[in-house]
């Protein structure tokens, strides 16, 4: 359950769409210097790193080539073992953040952006409605 906070977590929730976390931040990521909540802290012993930075690092370190079964770029059938893996509930956020990063990079998927601006994501492709005005601040539930 998201709660509004004066010091909200800067990480994004979601896989197919991205939205603000808005949980209260409790620490600062050593890599991106953004404020993050406990749930979006990657499980590391000696450093405080957010799950998004951890996912980027993991994907940068990954060296295995992408070989698609249909030989096409973009979305399509995937290799066995490339899909999401079974994890414990406490590891779900970090694991999904890593799979999300890998999926966006390798499948060319551009998620819907329903959050506030975040320069950390500026190099990534995503979709949003741009009519030249600022956020109206309303929620999805508004009509």
């Amino acid at each position: 359950m998201s709660t509004a906070s004066l010091d909200p977590c800067a990480c994004k929730r979601g896989f197919f769409t991205l939205r603000d976390c808005e949980r209260a931040a409790t620490r600062t990521c050593d890599v991106c210097r953004r404020r993050i909540c406990d749930e979006h802290r990657a499980p590391r012993v000696q450093a405080t790193v957010c799950v998004e930075c951890s996912a980027r690092q993991a994907e940068d370190d990954a060296v295995e080539p992408l070989v698609r079964t249909d030989g096409r770029p973009g979305v399509g059938p995937v290799n066995a073992g490339e899909g999401p893996q079974v994890v414990a509930p406490e590891d779900a956020t970090a694991s999904t953040a890593r799979y999300r990063r890998r999926y966006y990079d390798r499948h060319g998927y551009e998620p819907m952006w329903w959050g506030t601006h975040d320069s950390t994501w500026s190099g990534d492709g995503f979709r949003w409605y741009d009519d030249g005005t600022d956020d109206d601040g309303g929620g999805f539930g508004d009509s």
Partner: peptide, 18 residues
């Protein structure tokens, strides 16, 4: 498949989720 479905629509307004 869910990603494909999202590729078939565009957002119609700019909102921020609470």
């Amino acid at each position: 498949l869910v990603a494909h479905a999202y590729d078939r629509v565009d957002p119609t307004r700019r909102k921020k989720l609470r």
